[in-house]
Design a binder for these strands. Structure first.
Length: 420
DNA sequence: TCTGGGGTCCTAGGACCC
DNA sequence: TCTGGGGTCCTAGGACCC
């Protein structure tokens, strides 16, 4: 049996944890650049505000006082996530963190008849310890946990915990679950299935395997099996990420090559830092850029350029250098760029890195490693940052709009805890 | 005027092998 | 007009997730 612990409206709940005056109000958290809604309180959902709604469409509601918005504050969300996960980890035999606000709990060893009460106590414990409301769905497969979690969230009567632990409950739950809500059936898949007469999860489960296979591929068969109670989505064994991406949209269009180069250098430096944090090296650095696709009055251009390295690396100098080379190949004069990013791939553990037989200057690599270490040390010190001259002079958030930050934006965790 | 960021997995098709 | 059969590996792009 698994339990899926999922924080309710996570980013909004994080904002509320330190701003109790937001309780009971319609609140939306915006994406980077104050672009679109990425989290909504129940009150905001009740106003039919959809995920991904552009901020400018919400502005009238903000001005009338009906809605409160906040720019996203990922430092805060990361800190609160870590605290929630720590409480979960210390309470069950094992957890698998699935995303910033979700984790699967392994519930073996907890007697069947005590599972619900155990999880109910866990919900209270997380709330007491962090201020974050969480819901838990209990079921024999991960896909059914998602279904159970939906019920736990939607109906207050469950008080945050719902279990699908009998054949009868499973059948009834699937009948009440619209096909579009099923994990693994996306917004493209749902209309297609409805056209074929599949309205609910129960309808899907009622079709033969071959029907699923031919229309939905192997992913569909997995979902089908999981909904029937056969666990096929196992544990993610490979901890190491296969790609790391740092990308941003800009508040204003960028026409200047040197300007874009300094921002891409920043993104590359961030990728290198993430690699070092993971103890990884990457064998390929890629850069992409794009114009504003909503401006059909302007010429459009997007491009993605790979730059495979002779030797895998996590050095800031090497990753930035490779990114700048790739950018040179991407760049086209005369376009206003709205977005750019750096992706590093072909990631392997630092220890198992292949040497370069024809390396010309091994000492160079060592010097670069020392410089990277220095950069990491500076970063961890208070607000100070050591950067290459090719990078932006300002913060990583330079050129990104964040006009609705909560006042606690710059606070560190200890300050936040005191206030709490 | 203003429209996010960071991931994973699967599939189809091409290149190549015997 | 006719022109095999059976593999593997890689990659780009699509679909999905939060």
């Amino acid at each position: 049996m698994y339990g899926l612990a999922d924080c309710n409206n996570f980013f909004v709940s994080c904002e509320r944890a330190f701003q109790p005056e937001l309780e009971g109000r319609a609140v939306v958290v915006l994406s980077n650049n104050d672009g679109v809604a990425v989290a909504r309180s129940n009150e905001a959902k009740a106003m039919s505000i959809k995920m991904g709604t552009p901020f400018f469409q919400l502005r009238p509601m903000v001005e009338s006082g009906a809605l409160v918005v906040r720019s996203s504050n990922y430092k805060l969300y990361g800190d609160l996530s870590a605290r929630v996960m720590n409480i979960l980890r210390s309470s069950v035999p094992k957890i698998e963190i699935y995303s910033i606000d979700e984790a699967y709990l392994h519930l073996e060893g907890i007697p069947h008849e005590k599972r619900r009460e155990f999880c109910a106590e866990l919900v209270r414990k997380v709330r007491r310890g962090t201020g974050i409301p969480v819901s838990i769905g209990i079921a024999p497969t991960k896909t059914l946990c998602k279904v159970a979690n939906h019920f736990a969230k939607r109906y207050p009567g469950y008080r945050g915990v719902c279990a699908i632990d009998t054949e009868d409950k499973r059948r009834r739950a699937l009948e009440l679950t619209p096909i579009g809500e099923v994990w693994g059936v996306g917004w493209r898949g749902a209309p297609k299935l409805r056209k074929l007469g599949v309205e609910t999860a129960a309808d899907l489960v009622g079709r033969p395997e071959a029907w699923i296979r031919s229309r939905m591929g192997v992913g569909g068969v997995k979902t089908w099996l999981e909904l029937r109670g056969t666990a096929v989505i196992g544990e993610e064994t490979d901890e190491r990420r296969q790609s790391i991406c740092t990308s941003r949209s800009f508040a204003e269009l960028v026409y200047d090559k040197e300007e874009l180069k300094s921002r891409v250098s920043d993104f590359a430096a961030m990728c290198a830092k993430k690699l070092r944090k993971d103890g990884s090296v990457a064998g390929c650095v890629s850069v992409f850029l794009g114009t504003n696709r909503f401006r059909d009055d302007l010429p459009q251009y997007t491009h993605f350029e790979h730059n495979p390295l002779k030797q895998a690396t996590n050095s800031t100098i090497s990753v930035v250098g490779a990114a700048v080379q790739a950018l040179e190949r991407c760049w086209r004069e005369g376009y206003g760029y709205k977005r750019a990013g750096v992706v590093v791939t072909d990631i392997v553990p630092e220890e198992s890195m292949q040497g370069d037989l024809f390396e010309e200057d091994p000492a160079m690599r060592e010097r670069e490693a020392m410089l990277s270490e220095l950069i990491d040390r500076f970063d961890s010190a208070d607000g100070q940052m050591l950067k290459l001259a090719s990078q932006n002079e300002g913060l990583y958030s330079y050129g990104i709009r964040r006009e609705h930050c909560s006042k606690l934006f710059t606070s560190d965790w200890n300050e936040l805890m005191e206030i709490h």
